[in-house]
Design a protein around this nucleic acid. Sequence first.
DNA 1: GTATGCGCCGAACGCTCG
DNA 2: CGAGCGTTCGGCGCATAC
Length: 286
Amino acid sequence: MPRAFLVKKKQAACGGWRWRDPEQLEWREDPSGVSDSTPEKTLSAPDVSELDAPSQTSDFGSEEAPELAIPPVPIPTPPVLGFGEQDPETSQDWPALQPPRQLYHPNALALASRAKPRPRVAPSSGDFLCSVCHKLFPLQRMLTRHMKCHSLVKRHPCRYCGKGFNDTFDLKRHMRTHTGIRPYRCELCEKAFTQRCSLESHKRKIHGVHQQYAYRQRRSKIFVCEDCGFTSNRPDEYFVHIRQCHPGSPALRRYYRRQAHENANFGVAECKLNPYLVYSNSGYFI
DNA sequence: GTATGCGCCGAACGCTCG
DNA sequence: CGAGCGTTCGGCGCATAC
């Protein structure tokens, strides 16, 4: 699948994004003059501005604001500070926590519509067309999510550097660059990576190991503790670790909630039969 | 040349609502 | 209980850093 359209012009590296105040934003007209002022009628493309409200159910939303990662020694731990605050003892070492900076433009949708027109595919029934880039999606929710990439507001800010992301997982992945957690370790040279594709690329190029996976085939899931870097491919082992070492972790609360839901739906007896579940002292299944 | 970061995607998961 | 939708996860591929 051609992915050229996915590539945005890269700004500076992490922390060096060219954040601007809204009034500083300058927008140039498309020099090609190819603007689609009358975009094809979409089936139900949402307004970008409607996508800017923060989610209440996100992992990093108000309900489960992430605990500040506490990396293991020797990875230093930034102090927990409010926006604009500085740690009185180590203010020289740690920058004050950056407020969530956001980029937006009052007419982002109209501006985005100046994007180069893409090859159009005749929409079939059930396809949802992006009015900005004319990409088709089979499902409404895919289009809804896609529209976020046309929005300049990033809903998930990094608490370390303030950079914003549209996707909670992108933020989670980005946070590893600050915490130093590298869950994917090469068993041949002990080198570790933050992403699985980095490890696979390393093994392929350095060790000549080719993965036996098909295109987009799911790999075995690895459970990663974002607090200390503990990894396991066994969920029970992972949650025992979380319970023992990070009892206040949002991941543990999510797990308790899920177990409570499963108990309500299927009964305790079925949970006992689940090989992934073991009892905790508190009576929860871990 | 290799490692890293990340934008965006498809798909799975989980919740809500009729 | 199924449909619909939002959230989460992991993969791909690119730009950039090293």
